[in-house]
Design a protein around this nucleic acid. Sequence first.
DNA 1: GTCTATACCTGGATAGAC
DNA 2: GTCTATCCAGGTATAGAC
Lengths: 194, 194
Amino acid sequence: MHNKTTREQIVSVADELFYRQGFEHTSFADIAEAVQISRGNFYYHFKTKDDILDAVINQRLTNTQNMLDQWEMNGETAADRIRRFINILITNRRKIKAHGCPVGTLTSELAKLSHAAKGEANKLFSLFRTWLRHQFTELGCKKDADDLALHVLTFSQGVATLANAFHDEKFMRREVKQMEDWLDSVIANKYKGR
Amino acid sequence: MHNKTTREQIVSVADELFYRQGFEHTSFADIAEAVQISRGNFYYHFKTKDDILDAVINQRLTNTQNMLDQWEMNGETAADRIRRFINILITNRRKIKAHGCPVGTLTSELAKLSHAAKGEANKLFSLFRTWLRHQFTELGCKKDADDLALHVLTFSQGVATLANAFHDEKFMRREVKQMEDWLDSVIANKYKGR
DNA sequence: GTCTATACCTGGATAGAC
DNA sequence: GTCTATCCAGGTATAGAC
């Protein structure tokens, strides 16, 4: 059961390396070494490097959707689920300090490369945006649910970028705490006709 | 007076291209074409590509410092100066939508490349951080001036990243407005023993 | 499906003429 | 200070044997 196909291994390793080193900076040689296959063998599984990128993005989309679906079924309140999202920053703090946010850094890089797959990568953002909007709607913030969703994403992107620059865990915890307080105030205010 | 030396032209063009295309993705050929010189001519002015990067970062450090010094002398209040910083997002909205924040995207890229110049690029962040801390101290928020400075940077990085992903100007204006309101509340609260 | 060998190109860097 | 010519490493991609 734990035996992945070669193709799956390539995608999984490429996913990790693209995150840690960036897409352009990761060569076939890097991936081949990590998967322990020869360079030539790639082209049986993928025609081009861009095809690998597409596969990586699709895998991330699937995994993210699954995670969000999972959270949806956990019997928590919408507020708890949003808190859970905010706390990804704490859960993944080591990776984020080392490599930033996987979504934000990928879309930024693809934007600079004017890469065709930028739109696909953006769907990762949209996935979170839609899910968060849904949570805020459920919370009763119907009218500006999308604005609030974007606000949460803004916050998490900002924290990830600065955490990566300064490697400061205290900063991360402080900001997350503030964001939780903000969320509480949003919930409190909705009863006063937000 | 408007005649720049070749070296200055190289740095200035490289600065722009590194911002728009990323450091790694920008080749000597790109710069040479823009400056209208031959590739070989580079090496009279710079020994390596990394040397160009250093020069670009130093130029940005100088320009940024000059800008902040300028703001400092304009006879405004500290609150006005912080507002001015926040509003860079509006002033530079077109570039930010197209290419993100020049500081954030450069440090992210250099982090992924494990590039030696990452520390230098981080100084750009530190410049803003120190300056903002100074403004908040002047405002009377002595104790947590640095936290507040980082909070403002976090906000601006988050907005820049999402603006680049979604190309949404309304979103930018909304977030900037919120940040200004937040700043007002910080100023109001400091009298109640912050 | 996986390998080796290799073609081809781009990009950074050097040498030397002018 | 600027040019042309050239070298070399590394990266993507292909061909074809096993």
